Deep mutational scan, measured.
Amino acid sequence: MASQGTKRSYEQMETDGERQNATEIRASVGKMIGGIGRFYIQMCTELKLSDYEGRLIQNSLTIERMVLSAFDERRNKYLEEHPSAGKDPKKTGGPIYRRVNGKWMRELILYDKEEIRRIWRQANNGDDATAGLTHMMIWHSNLNDATYQRTRALVRTGMDPRMCSLMQGSTLPRRSGAAGAAVKGVGTMVMELVRMIKRGINDRNFWRGENGRKTRIAYERMCNILKGKFQTAAQKAMMDQVRESRNPGNAEFEDLTFLARSALILRGSVAHKSCLPACVYGPAVASGYDFEREGYSLVGIDPFRLLQNSQVYSLIRPNENPAHKSQLVWMACHSAAFEDLRVLSFIKGTKVLPRGKLSTRGVQIASNENMETMESSTLELRSRYWAIRTRSGGNTNQQRASAGQISIQPTFSVQRNLPFDRTTIMAAFNGNTEGRTSDMRTEIIRMMESARPEDVSFQGRGVFELSDEKAASPIVPSFDMSNEGSYFFGDNAEEYDN
């Protein structure tokens, strides 16, 4: 783990906690998980779902989305002020799938948001429990990260689609708070800032007046979040320049895209947490497990152990491969979309394939898809080993990566060399080191050039047997250095459309 220093740990961010010791953190995270579980059980009762239907990941996603929508204050306010045809701002819903006479049927349900809020609060001892809501947002974000390569979004903001390893959390809503900021990748933060800068260039009043003052505060806050992700002084200094700019424009845009590229080699610290679907927490609570009393951590053995003992089902389209669908969801559960496939294969105990080789589309089923041909199958979400999630980018030494994705962002704290394609990355730096950030740029390029592919990161860190909950005997895996390590390699994943 990167030293926490003055930073709060993510469990504290996750639970809005002030400084807590490890036991208190485990208890408050457990409380959050228990609340999600209780809410899910109650919703299944309301909807009269069978046990099997309640364990269907598509039903879980609909129920999670309903509660997130019920608590989305800004959108609710907007919907009330701008009524649109056929949208009731006070209601929320989605597809629920039921097994009827041996076939899967889709039923569109509609609930009062007020009623959903009441059920959620009741499951969370009367609190709004925003930490639990954020947790579900991060699960949705991790699922998107594993399912889609955001080529269009990258290109629109002047970045290269091969930089997708920097895009963790790119679909997280803005209201996801400190826990959300911690899991956002460098590219995601750059993209958010670039969008602001572009608006400022096109709209003279963007930075002016009372609204402009708020915009400015948001801009500086985002700059500080991004600065905190960088691990070298030169990158941090460049972020200070971007933040202090009187009138952010093209120079800042250039600096930010430069920094994003540099992060492929001088990786930023991005938190990883295993956020599971509500249909995993519900049955665990129903079986009598007391998360608050037992304590829970999002970055240790607990999620692995929970998945070892969970039964989750998914709808499967006619030509999809259930094992591939399982891999997709497994990666999402562990926030591992940008991790090295060699490491993932070792931990999972079966070969993890790149996205383009998977015969599976996303987990969600569109409303126009034919239910007649839908089957369902068990998702295999178990693992051979477990490993500690990392909050750091690993040290800054790398190795060759593949054509589709030119770097990785480690999820697990496991000893290995970190793949990246130096030639491709360095070719993108057209040696432009003039301007006010020239000395920093020169320094950053120097550090990137001296990074050695064969150097090892996370020295001495290994994986653990599932029986080793105290992480007492690390097993340090050895990897084939020459092997392909990137998930979005030469990829044809669908595009994420909101």
Score class of each variant (00 low, 15 high):
G30P: 07
G169W: 06
L341R: 10
F429T: 04
E107N: 15
S262F: 11
I33Y: 06
A366Q: 06
R174Q: 01
K273F: 05
M481Q: 04
F346D: 12
T390Q: 09
N144K: 08
K357V: 05
H82P: 03
L110N: 09
N321W: 14
E320A: 06
L108E: 08
F464K: 04
A493G: 12
F429D: 06
Q149T: 06
G460H: 07
G462P: 01
Y487H: 14
G17T: 09
R361W: 06
G35E: 13
D160P: 03
P173I: 05
R355T: 09
E46V: 11
I365D: 03
R382G: 12
K357Q: 11
S262K: 06
Q58N: 15
D240S: 07
W139A: 03
N432D: 13
Y496W: 11
R38F: 07
R267H: 15
V183T: 14
M189T: 12
G295V: 10
T350V: 04
F489Q: 03
T373I: 14
L344E: 05
F429E: 02
L172K: 08
G34T: 13
E443S: 07
N432Q: 09
G356I: 06
L341P: 09
R199A: 04
G5I: 00
N125A: 13
A387F: 05
D439W: 09
E339F: 04
V67M: 13
A260L: 00
R152L: 07
Q459R: 08
F304N: 11
F488Q: 05
R150I: 09
T147E: 03
M66A: 07
G300C: 09
A2D: 01
I408D: 00
N370H: 10
D290Q: 13
G35R: 11
G126L: 14
K351A: 10
Y78A: 13
T396L: 12
Y385F: 14
R293Q: 12
R452F: 10
N417H: 13
K113Y: 03
V155M: 07
G228R: 10
N76D: 12
A27L: 13
Q327K: 10
F489I: 13
E294R: 05
L56R: 01
N498K: 10
T433C: 08
F304S: 11
A85L: 01
L298G: 04
A472S: 07
T257G: 02
M447D: 15
P248W: 05
I347K: 02
P419L: 15
E81S: 09
Q122F: 05
A131S: 12
R452D: 04
N205P: 01
P354M: 08
I138M: 11
F258L: 11
I119C: 05
M43S: 04
M43R: 05
R106N: 09
I63W: 06
R208F: 07
T232Q: 12
L61F: 13
F206Y: 10
S359K: 15
P89H: 15
V29N: 05
S402H: 14
L259M: 10
A387Q: 01
I444D: 02
S176K: 02
V363Y: 02
R162T: 12
V242A: 04
A271I: 00
G485H: 01
E14I: 02
Q308R: 14
V299N: 08
Y52R: 08
T215V: 10
H334M: 02
D421N: 12
W104L: 13
K273Y: 06
S450I: 13
F346W: 12
M440P: 00
P277F: 04
G93C: 07
K48F: 02
L79D: 02
G180T: 05
S50N: 05
M66W: 04
A153L: 07
R98M: 11
H135G: 02
N224H: 14
S383I: 10
K325S: 01
D88K: 01
R38H: 14
P419T: 14
D455E: 14
T130Q: 15
S50H: 09
I316P: 00
V29Y: 04
A22L: 09
G282E: 06
G17I: 02
A22G: 15
A218K: 06
Y52P: 00
G94K: 05
L68E: 04
K113P: 01
W330A: 01
L328R: 00
V456C: 02
N142V: 01
G30F: 08
K113E: 12
L315Q: 09
C164N: 15
G86M: 02
E494F: 06
K31C: 05
E64K: 11
A123C: 11
Q399L: 09
F291L: 08
F346Y: 09
P161I: 07
R391S: 07
A337T: 10
K31S: 07
A323M: 13
I388W: 09
N370K: 08
V190N: 14
S3L: 14
K31Q: 04
D203P: 01
T62W: 04
R152D: 03
G30L: 00
I25D: 01
I36Q: 05
L298H: 07
Q42N: 05
R204F: 05
